[in-house]
Design a binder for these strands. Structure first.
Length: 818
DNA sequence: AGCACGCCGACT
DNA sequence: GTCGGCGTGCTC
């Protein structure tokens, strides 16, 4: 009997191990095992049980041990993980690791033991005057015969003691073993006590014996009364004692130690109001819901895209559907971009399903997260709400998956395994035969395109809840403003006036600044155009050292002129302005008002987002200045004005989605205005008022925007029209083949099948490949040793590396990397 | 990833 | 010799 085991190492596939007789009945798919890998031990996940194997028998090693009593992943989830591994070309073990709740882990440890021969050798050292590092290791071990590698490092000061140990092991002076400490308790259990049989055999005798120890007596009486095992910490707390007497009773054998299941206090504010039932839906909402339910009846999987304008009440649709599918005994998974930014959504779910929700996100401690994971695993939650990693939540009988704000970039995981939780959600829905709902006011271009193509079913909510009007949007042309005043102002006179007006009327104001404006892009003061790469349509960065503009996508270069090539206007360096600065200006202009700032600096601590938003809600803030984080879906009725400081700033990012992101941000932040009785207004200040992303946002014309953007993408072969492998070949490869070239080729093959695309400047050695296989060539990598570094830093920092030798570099998922 | 092993150059 | 710094190959 064999098993295929996924290991959290960069291996292309699972490895095969033999199952020893003694472990046979403990083996099931989804269970973790400890296996030898090279000279070390690793924890891996059983993916499959195999009757036989084609591998030569002599290379197969046996499983050392079994970690779990029951599978962590069911078969559907395992298939899901396998698919991800294949699709994103990552090691299956990495995927399994990502799907694990944290805090369940195991720590491998090297243990070094000195041999008799080693002891003899160490004696000789005393005569030696100067000791080498190896000698030091030996003499240290002579004092403590058994040590782990970390402690050895500590004593010797520095790292790498193991290296000397290997040499010494060869000489037979010591042995190196590896042990994995498995946490039996999983964090979920804590130690408890119950009176032992020894006590019950003769209680009176023992009570007598404990007379002189009143505290022990107290414990015995307490345990007798309860007749069930009690957690030690609870006993200690309730009787107000320390652990001493408990240990003493244990020593006498009067109590028995047991493991108990951890009960944990809920960590989020509990909702104790009345539970709400089916929400009242508008005709539009009802029509959308029924479409989805129809799909549920047929048990067919289908992906829906709900395009609902801001304030149209997508949440009601989610809630309605959740009620319906729960009534059928099924469960729902709700994915949200970032919990800290959307406390309101979670609260809505609590109002309906309190007590039956699991909440999973990275802001929780490992223990809290594990608790929530376990609750879902045991089927105690009808609803799981969570951020991207919650797409792996252990839910049996899934009846619905919702991806709220599906366009949001935080669904992308940009560390290995790289994935987009939105796409995974669709796949998971397919595997579970559950409908998937993507919801957004501003869908990703790819999603919208998929809907137009009929791949997703498009549902639209065109009316705002309670017949609120969409805010009136006004663009302030900052070039005019500059010409008129002669000075570069942060706040235009119109915005200033409007703030005054709205505050006087008792409203609140949001001011959005995209802080990521660098000084190193060039913008025309006349026409507002930013210098873009002619191949890639992304902003080029100005490099002072070479006095040239460089494209961070294709590395093409361009000399700098003082004048704009379209209108001969003066080119200036694009200067981003900070939130702090704007906060100061506004505070100066509106002395009596309360101005607050919300950005990375002011929301560093846990719960800071929530605090600021609560202040806003309770009216303790008049003007809130912030970065994109203020744009996310909260709903504050008193906000009547939204100001955007420099709408074009995103356009200066080297990102082919810059137009899309601009349109989305403007639409989203504009949607914050006028959620109450008073209509809202939006003032957009910009140097590029004619840019289509800004123009269509002003007109609330999303169809127009998507049309334009899709045309552009088609022309430039960007997603959704291509899948791109990001590959760079630089210089000669000196006849050497890097082992990663193989990997590269694999990926290449994959992309040939899926139809990739080429663009970018010519690069001789690979041009043939490019013509044949249509690959975009982007990153350069000097050598394999820097491959991981370069990958980790992704495109932009790859350019900082000095380039000498040839090499290949790869990163495969365009949605993730880009 | 992380370890083993080999090669090389710097320094006793 | 010894030590440390790369570069490369391999893990059932």
């Amino acid at each position: 009997m064999y098993v295929s085991v996924a290991l959290a190492r960069p291996l292309e596939s699972t490895l095969t191990y033999e199952v020893p007789e003694r472990l046979k009945d403990k083996i099931k798919p989804g269970i973790r095992v400890i296996v030898p890998l090279g000279r070390r031990m690793e924890t891996g996940w059983i993916f499959e049980i195999l009757e036989k194997t084609d591998l030569p028998i002599n290379i197969i090693k046996p499983i050392r041990n079994v970690v779990d009593g029951e599978p962590l992943f069911d078969v559907k989830l395992l298939n899901f993980l396998r698919w991800i591994s294949d699709y994103y070309l990552v090691s299956p073990g990495y995927v399994a690791k990502a799907a694990m709740p944290p805090g369940i882990g195991d720590t491998p440890e090297f243990v070094i033991v000195i041999t008799d021969k080693g002891l003899l050798e160490a004696e000789k050292l005393e005569k030696k005057k100067k000791l080498s590092k190896g000698d030091l290791v030996l003499s240290t071990l002579c004092k403590n015969h058994k040590m782990n590698a970390r402690d050895l490092d500590k004593i010797l000061g520095g790292e790498g003691a193991l290296r000397y140990c290997y040499a010494l092991e060869k000489q037979g002076f010591l042995t190196i073993n590896q042990e994995i400490k498995v946490r039996e308790d999983y964090l979920l259990r804590r130690s408890g006590s119950i009176l032992s049989d020894k006590y019950y055999e003769n209680p009176e005798k023992w009570k007598e014996a404990c007379k002189k120890a009143p505290v022990q007596m107290k414990i015995i009486e307490y345990l007798e009364e309860r007749k069930e095992p009690l957690p030690d910490d609870k006993i200690m707390k309730n009787l107000d004692i320390s652990s001493g007497p408990l240990a003493e009773l244990n020593k006498k054998g009067l109590i028995k130690k047991v493991f108990l299941e951890q009960e944990r206090e809920t960590f989020y504010p509990d909702y104790d109001g009345p539970l709400q039932n089916l929400p009242d839906l508008t005709d539009e909402q009802m029509a959308a819901s029924l479409e989805v339910l129809k799909c549920c009846e047929n048990k067919s999987h289908r992906t829906f895209l709900i395009r609902g304008i801001t304030g149209s009440g997508k949440t009601e649709v989610y809630l309605y559907l959740c009620h319906k599918i729960i009534a059928e005994g099924k469960k729902a998974l709700i994915l949200i971009p970032e919990i800290s930014l959307t406390p309101q959504l979670f609260r809505r779910f609590q109002e309906h399903f309190a007590g039956r929700i699991s909440l999973l996100h990275s802001g929780l401690s490992p223990g809290e997260r594990f608790e929530q994971w376990l609750k879902a695993k045991r089927g105690l939650s009808d609803i799981v709400v969570g951020t991207r990693s919650a797409v792996f939540a252990p839910i049996d009988n899934l009846g619905l998956i919702v991806v709220d704000e599906e366009h949001d970039g935080s669904y992308k995981q940009d560390e290995t395994p790289r994935y987009n939780a939105r796409d995974l959600a669709i796949k998971r829905g397919e595997i579970s035969a559950a409908p998937v709902l993507l919801g957004s006011a501003t869908p990703a271009v790819e999603s919208y395109y998929n809907a137009l193509q009929g791949k997703y079913h498009l549902l639209e909510l065109k009316k705002r809840f309670g017949d609120q009007e969409l805010p009136k949007v006004t663009i302030v042309d900052m070039r005019e403003e500059f010409k008129r005043t002669g000075i570069q102002q942060e706040i235009s006179s119109l915005l200033d006036d409007k703030i005054k007006e709205k505050l006087e009327a008792g409203g609140q104001v949001l001011v959005l600044i995209n802080r990521r404006g660098y000084r190193a892009r060039l913008i025309c003061r006349e026409c507002g155009r930013i210098v873009l790469c002619k191949y890639c349509n992304v902003a080029m960065k100005y490099h002072h050292t070479i006095d040239k503009l460089v494209c961070h996508f294709c590395d093409s270069r361009k000399s700098v002129s003082d004048r704009c090539e379209y209108c001969r206007g003066e080119l200036i360096e694009f200067a981003g302005i900070g939130t702090q600065r704007v906060e100061e200006i506004l505070q100066r202009d509106f002395r009596t008002k309360i101005v607050m700032r919300m950005d990375q600096d002011t929301t560093g601590s846990r719960g800071a987002h929530y605090r600021i938003l609560e202040m806003l809600r309770h009216g303790h803030i008049d003007i809130l200045v912030g970065t994109q984080m203020i744009a996310k879906g909260h709903d504050y009725p008193r906000i009547t004005l939204v100001g955007v400081i420099s709408a074009e700033s995103i356009l200066a990012l080297p990102d082919f989605r810059h137009s899309e992101k601009t349109f989305q941000l403007l639409t989203q932040v504009g949607g914050r205005a006028g959620r109450g009785e008073n209509p809202g207004e939006v003032i957009i200040q910009t140097f590029a008022p004619d840019h289509y992303s800004i123009r269509f946002a002003e007109e609330h014309d999303y169809v127009g925007f998507y049309k334009e953007e899709i045309l552009l993408r088609e022309r430039l072969s960007y997603p959704p029209f291509s899948r791109m492998a990001v590959v760079r070949f630089e210089g000669k490869d000196k006849g050497k083949t890097y082992s990663d070239a193989y990997k590269f080729k694999q990926i290449l093959d994959k992309f040939i099948k899926t139809g990739s695309i080429i663009r970018g400047p010519k690069s001789a050695p690979i041009s043939k490949l490019r013509d044949r296989h249509r690959i975009q060539i982007i990153i350069r990598c000097p050598s394999r040793s820097e491959l991981s570094t370069v990958l980790a830093h992704s495109i932009s920092s790859a350019h900082k590396e000095g380039i000498s030798k040839g090499g290949y570099i790869i990163d495969i998922d365009p949605y993730n990397l880009m």
